[in-house]
Design a protein around this nucleic acid. Structure first.
Lengths: 248, 248
DNA sequence: TCAAAAGTGTTTTATCTACACCCATGG
DNA sequence: CCATGGGTGTAGATAAAACACTTTTGA
């Protein structure tokens, strides 16, 4: 059974090495009706989906989300949504805000619990699910028309990410396992929306001892190959115990 | 009409100058049933309230909260809850987390949206509302038995507050309009759970220019009277525009 | 005159900022 | 040999940390 007043929306962030992107979709109305008909509450939420902007035209996009099942933890459900759209089953997810305005969705009261996911697109094969007409990455600085309050939700997610990334080493989830210092710096720059000084950034990051050299270097690059680093989970946990105060 | 699957819980923090306290209540089952009978969804939520631990015994306390009305913004409803229990109508409220485990409340699926309020008890007359059997402040380090997952909710609220207070000047909401530097410091100490050096604290706070002298001093204290300061909202906003990075 | 809390400065150490050139690699 | 991005150090300014005594007031 679906909870008719509660949905979960996932803002799936992906960093491609240059830009921060969000995964958006358009659902296929015919397929969606097919799936929904099997649900107990179909009649009650059918109206909502009938009038869903991202179903009724090709210019409006929406966040990946759905009404929550009555028997599933919200955290768990957010995982399922993310897995079903990215094909990846161990994603960093953070609940960041619940949107509870009475009129945020027309005709019907739906509060939505917002999660953001941080993934590296290199590892994830975006799955066109059974319901999907289209699914696509969009640069956070060039979003298309969005349904309901989804633009506000993305903007709110980005604010949370921007704050979080300064005090917690979560940004690593956006990178491949092995990454260069330049990739790391670029990631911070696009999230924070400002340029950082390369020498000061490197000094600071290396002093923290949160990352370690792998000993490897980039291959097949048309310039000097950069060293590859990885996040040092073990040392991070040790430093947290000792009272690490992280600050980019 | 009440939303049967959605409630709002408010962790109301009050700082008395020495300790950080949380406002908890026990509702009166007879009165509660009386009020609920007037609601459309009475039968559906009656069972829930019938089995509510804070109604069925005198040792279990609960957060101040209620099922959300279908037609009210959650932010607005959190305000109403806070107003009705504290008698104050301009309270700092922050939504901090939504608790969505399937089994957090027995017998029935209820997700709860958590807000915390920061108030100064000096200005607030705790109102024993029509439903209240008892309402009382508890030191956050000496909480009584709590219903459902309310202990976890409080602990989560405190973590959020602890983080927030380090980067945003929200702690002022816990203080009277005019306060001494010692009160300010003690507030930080109880929230952060650590002692701060008095001289370094004063230097840091005064350098930020977030507070200004009122020119007044304490009266009727059995020792040297301390200067009274107030938060400088105007300058704070100016500094934010200039890119203030606050850090206690 | 005593008890209780207010108030104050300096030195050392660590961190932040600004800034420009050489290096390695592949094409 | 050139284009492209990788990689490095230093000096000056600012902020953090450690630390102990004098002042004011009311009882």
């Amino acid at each position: 059974m679906l909870l008719k007043n509660i949905s979960v929306d996932c803002v799936i962030f992906g960093f491609d090495g240059e830009r921060l992107n969000v995964l958006l979709w358009q659902a296929d109305p015919k397929l969606l009706i097919g799936v929904l008909q099997q649900k107990e509450e179909f009649e009650q939420i059918r109206f909502l989906y009938d009038t869903h902007p991202s179903l009724s035209n090709d210019h409006t996009w929406g966040l990946i989300g759905a009404h929550a099942p009555a028997e599933t933890d919200l955290d768990q459900f957010a995982q399922e949504i993310t897995i079903s759209s990215t094909g990846l089953n161990d994603v960093y997810l953070k609940q960041f805000h619940t949107f509870g305005s009475a009129m945020r969705v027309p005709y019907y009261r739906v509060i939505t619990v917002g999660y953001y996911a941080l993934i590296n697109p290199r590892y994830h094969n975006i799955r066109q699910s059974a319901l999907t007409k289209k699914m696509q990455w969009f640069d956070i600085n060039a979003l298309p028309a969005l349904c309901f309050d989804h633009r506000e939700i993305i903007s709110n997610a980005l604010s949370h990410l921007r704050e979080s990334v300064q005090y917690h080493p979560v940004g690593f989830h956006l990178l491949p396992e092995k990454f260069t210092l330049t990739e790391l710096q670029t990631m911070y720059e696009v999230i924070l929306g400002e340029k950082l000084d390369i020498r000061n950034f490197r000094k600071k990051i290396l002093k923290m001892e949160l990352i370690e050299e792998t000993g490897e270097k980039q291959a097949n690059v048309p310039h000097r190959a950069a060293r590859l680093y990885r996040f040092d989970q073990e040392n991070y946990e040790k430093l947290v115990k000792e009272g690490l105060t992280f600050r980019i």
